[in-house]
Design a protein around this nucleic acid. Sequence first.
DNA 1: TAGATTGTTAATCGATTAACAATC
DNA 2: TAGATTGTTAATCGATTAACAATC
Lengths: 212, 212
Amino acid sequence: MKTPKISEAVVRRLPVYLRFLNELHKRNILTVSSQDLGQKLNANPAQIRKDLAYFGEFGKKGIGYDVPYLIEKIRQILKLDQVIPVVLIGAGNLGRALCNYNAYLQDNMKIVAVFDASPVRIGEQINNLKVSPIHELKAMIELHKVRIGIITVPALEAQMVANQLVESGIEAILNFAPVIIKVPDSIRVHHADFTTELQSLAYYLETKAQLD
Amino acid sequence: MKTPKISEAVVRRLPVYLRFLNELHKRNILTVSSQDLGQKLNANPAQIRKDLAYFGEFGKKGIGYDVPYLIEKIRQILKLDQVIPVVLIGAGNLGRALCNYNAYLQDNMKIVAVFDASPVRIGEQINNLKVSPIHELKAMIELHKVRIGIITVPALEAQMVANQLVESGIEAILNFAPVIIKVPDSIRVHHADFTTELQSLAYYLETKAQLD
DNA sequence: TAGATTGTTAATCGATTAACAATC
DNA sequence: TAGATTGTTAATCGATTAACAATC
């Protein structure tokens, strides 16, 4: 079943839907309409229906969507119904934070190894993982068939790490370093850059003359 | 000088331009064309020119843009030419990571206080800041005229913290908790949610039948 | 049956890109 | 002057929203 032309915007909304559906599920709510969803997520109901309809007919006319069923379907679409092995490079504060979020990720993404270039960090324990030297990266990726790499090293090292990930056969990268990294077109890169996020937020502050 | 209808997409690109311009500046490159910028940032030159033209005529025909001048202008647009006081709530791993990035933010955003609800964390030192109990939040915001709040508490506490921020007179919120928080329309909220980022990334992985 | 809500087509809206006169 | 590059208008492209027949 090929899904031909799904825009990035659609794909980015699916996890948001999923998260809210999980909440409904926890509260034992069995059915939800696009109306309800839209209200809670500040989204247009038509948009939600259209987004979902790209992937199949998941709802029932007159009724709405079955919550557990829709959860299952979105998890399938996002490939979250399988465990995806992930490596993380950069065992600084941010790297640690992400490792601790690991449990959070509902068991579908598993950080299987953490790397750092700094000798003082190698061997340190983060949760149940030991920080490995970066020269073991390739072997580990191949061994665990790792598919996603998370980069949490300083900006200057990010491109080098990205190169190594690409060489090692990674499929996608989540880059937290505040630089644009260059990779072959076949590798998907997402940016998670909170400095730009924060800076664009500043734009929306009211301009004030007084500064004290 | 009112800028009437600037889209969010435009504002989000400005920090990216700024970061690259800063790099050029460090390398003593004095002039850059939209062509050059576009190439390095994987963007369309026309888009860059248009984005900048919303705010003024910063370039010179036949020459391009003066790097230091454009940096200055973008910093003005993003209000980064003044120090913006920020508070951070949630002194966990992520909160710590952000505090350490503080120095990174080029002196234009300053985390003036860090808060946590957990008694064991109160009094802890993070860089040059001491973790304060959350009941001091309002007083601190008023005292320092804090404008932006960064939420790095667990999902369940995020809405409560957001409420307190709003009551205290904050203008904007950067929310790292994986929930949608409800605030009055006058408050700008940006989401920095890497779990959704990571989940949407999974979508782009090649589908594989074999799972071992 | 009447009311509700989907899936989908058509209409609208907005953002990106191309093209080019102006001009350094 | 000739070449380069801006600022901006017009053309294109894509995404969002409205509307509604189908149907539970």
